[in-house]
Simulated assay, not measured.
Amino acid sequence: MPKSKKHNTLGQRLAKWMLKILLYFLGITLGWVLLYKFINPPITYLMVQRGFERKADGKSFKIDKQWLSFDELSNNLKKAAIAGEDANFMQHNGFDFEAMQKAFKKNQKSKKLRGGSTISQQTAKNVFLWPGRSYIRKGFEAYFTFLIELCWSKNRILEVYLNVIEMGDGVYGAEKACQKYYGKSASSLSKAQAALLIAVLPNPRKWSPAKPTNYLSHRQYLILRNMRNLGKIEF
């Protein structure tokens, strides 16, 4: 067989295999996202990783979480999350390019990196991916963000976000965090309590609503101000 034909056959086989892999990937990931549209994610990679980190530190393996439906979650908490993490959440399609640009400019002037991730991006990362900062993971994050914005409602994205996000050492989701820090359910938070709970999210294992620092109190004030500026949100 001539070499050119051999090369063509090999190239065609490789192309077919790549196409099959791509189709399998698209089918599996789309099915995964659609499944979580109706079924609550039982666990995330971060929860497992943190559990093993606790074991390595001589502590017990701990994943403390309790799911609340969207309607059960306090509207004050939903609004505080938007005000503190993603003011344009209800308007954008998963990516806030203006916020990303601002974060990029600030990072040029500061040694402390600031994120420009939306609630949708954080949800995609927390639910479907592993922690990290590689370009590959960022690419997958963008892909899953596109899928959940396409397949889920804004209410579902916010519900999943508030139920899986890390809120303390071994504590995940708003309900268990509120029980731990406030001795009450996430269904009945005041505006001030909701704002303070969201204020700790940049570093929930270091900061605690039970012992707010001056910095946390200032973040709480800013979130409360943003909540007022947002006006009424129809959930």
Rank of each mutant, 00 (worst) to 15 (best):
L113H: 12
F95G: 07
L73Y: 04
K184G: 00
I28E: 00
K211C: 13
A174T: 02
I157E: 00
H218K: 15
F146N: 01
N107C: 14
K78S: 02
G170A: 04
A80S: 01
A192L: 04
G31I: 14
P41W: 04
N155W: 05
A103K: 11
L196V: 04
G115M: 10
M90Q: 12
K6T: 14
Y215S: 08
P212I: 04
F95W: 05
R50H: 05
L46A: 15
N126L: 10
A174I: 01
V200C: 00
G231S: 03
L197I: 06
D71Y: 07
A99I: 05
K78T: 04
A81W: 03
I82R: 06
G183S: 12
G116F: 05
P131Q: 09
R205W: 02
S117L: 06
G173F: 00
I43G: 00
L23R: 07
E149H: 02
K112A: 07
R114M: 11
A81F: 01
I21A: 12
L113N: 14
A199L: 07
R156G: 02
N40C: 00
A103E: 13
S185L: 05
N155C: 05
K154R: 15
A124V: 07
I198D: 01
L26C: 12
I21L: 13
F89A: 06
V164F: 03
S60G: 15
S117F: 06
S4K: 11
L35R: 09
E234F: 13
F140D: 07
R219F: 11
L22C: 05
T145E: 01
E234R: 12
A103I: 13
F97Q: 14
W67M: 08
A174E: 00
R228K: 15
A80W: 02
A124P: 10
W130N: 10
N76P: 05
N214I: 01
A99T: 12
